[in-house]
């Protein structure tokens, strides 16, 4: 695992923070590490915070979609949170609207949703 991303295990949920300068190899490493962790911790969900991500290309978009699909196979719901407007527009332009993952405005919105309560 590189420093470009970090995985935390909280309340049965894996929290993934992606750094701004994540490289293609880093993100591939992340994909592998995350799959391992989901099984090891029997996580029920994965919350990926991509707020730091300013630029996406088809590669990153595809990996994000794959991460969600892999998680789904391992019985964990993926949440993508904190997406920037420019990133959202780019992903839509590229036709990658991450159908497998849920989305939320922020980490806390995703956690609230996971706890099954509306945000106060």
């Amino acid at each position: 695992m590189s420093a470009a991303s970090a995985i935390y295990f909280v309340e049965g949920v894996l929290l993934v923070a992606i750094q701004e300068d994540i490289s293609d190899t880093d993100i591939l490493d992340l994909q592998e590490a995350l799959a391992e962790r989901i099984v090891r911790d029997s996580a029920r969900a994965v919350v990926m915070d991509i707020n730091a991500l300013e630029i996406v290309d088809t590669f990153v978009g595809r990996i994000l979609a794959q991460l969600a699909s892999v998680s789904k196979l391992l019985d964990a719901q993926t949440y993508v949170v904190g997406m920037r407007p420019a990133v959202a527009m780019t992903l839509v332009e590229l036709g990658m609207d991450l159908p497998e993952s849920k989305t939320a405005l922020s980490l806390s919105h995703a956690l609230q949703d996971l706890r099954g309560k509306p945000l106060a």
Binding site: V80, M83, P85, V87, A88, M89, V92, D97, T103, A104
Partner: peptide, 12 residues
């Protein structure tokens, strides 16, 4: 539809 997709990606 694009707008709706982007809104969803933002988490709304």
């Amino acid at each position: 539809l694009r707008m709706a997709s982007a809104v969803r990606l933002m988490g709304a």
